[in-house]
């Protein structure tokens, strides 16, 4: 038996169907190349296009931010930041509280009898601090007792919240007569402070918008007299001999 493959007997068959076979091979190769090359190419193009759209959105956000920054009067905000810091400081800053009370005492003709703060909040940074709900600002409970006429007490309460000094809200009051036109008012309220954030956000973080109420507050604060650091310092006290042998 002849075990060798006799290909010669297939040659007539190939010749008979050569057109069909060649065309089929071409069609098969085209189909395979479509799946191997063409479709991945289109996928790649789609991915690049999608990334392009993301970049366009990012570019628009950044352009908007650049335009907003260009329109900001940086000097105006720098000039007023120290004043805003007086109204809402970055730390508890009891000195500014005392200064505010002293100033209002003179401005509204009341006499300050007593001020109370929560000692636990003063003593250590780890003491329990209460935040303003929904924000990063902290609350400093205060109690104030003043003596004056009803109208001067009314002016004092108004001045606590008019952004002319440290901002203090009054939650409740009690006023009692001391005879004649003199009243003692006991006010329970809150002062606030807002520590500086650790970061300002990434480069593509949009600038916050300022609404009309906030602009009004800024305009009010811009008019206040900025307190210089000298006004905060205590007067120097006379000291004794520095040298005992003199």
């Amino acid at each position: 038996m002849n075990k060798d493959f006799d290909y010669k007997k297939y040659i007539p068959l190939l010749k008979k169907y050569e057109i069909i076979i060649a065309s089929s091979i071409v069609i098969f190769v085209v189909v395979v190349m479509t799946f191997l090359l063409l479709i991945p190419n289109f996928d790649r193009a789609q991915n690049i296009y999608a990334q392009q759209q993301d970049l366009k959105r990012n570019r628009d956000v950044l352009q908007k931010k650049v335009n907003s920054l260009a329109s900001i009067d940086a000097q105006y905000y720098k000039n007023n930041f120290a004043k805003i810091d007086q109204v809402l400081p970055t730390e508890k800053d009891y000195v500014s509280l005392f200064y505010t009370f002293d100033t209002l005492e003179q401005k509204t003709n009341v006499s300050l009898l007593k001020t109370d703060f929560q000692l636990g909040v003063i003593s250590t940074n780890s003491a329990q601090l209460t935040r303003v709900p929904g924000s990063s600002a902290y609350v400093l409970p205060v109690g104030i007792q003043v003596l004056g006429s009803l109208s001067s007490i009314q002016n004092f309460i108004k001045a606590l919240g008019d952004f002319s000094g440290r901002y203090i809200t009054v939650d409740s009051f009690q006023i009692e007569t001391k005879g004649g036109d003199a009243f003692i008012a006991t006010l329970v309220g809150k002062a606030y402070f807002y520590p500086l954030p650790a970061t300002l956000g990434s480069v593509d973080t949009p600038l916050p918008n300022m609404n009309s109420d906030e602009e009004k507050i800024l305009n009010t604060i811009a008019k206040i007299q900025q307190t210089s650091s000298e006004e905060y310092s205590l007067p120097s006290s006379a000291v004794g001999k520095k040298n005992l042998f003199q």
Partner: peptide, 29 residues
């Protein structure tokens, strides 16, 4: 500029929030 503006608006936002919710007893007195 961004820093000073952002810090200013965040403080103003807090003042606006707090003043909106707090009572002003001047008219009542």
């Amino acid at each position: 500029t961004e820093g000073i503006y952002t810090l200013t608006t965040s403080r103003l936002n807090i003042l606006d929030q707090v003043s909106g919710k707090s009572a002003n007893f001047t008219s009542l007195i």
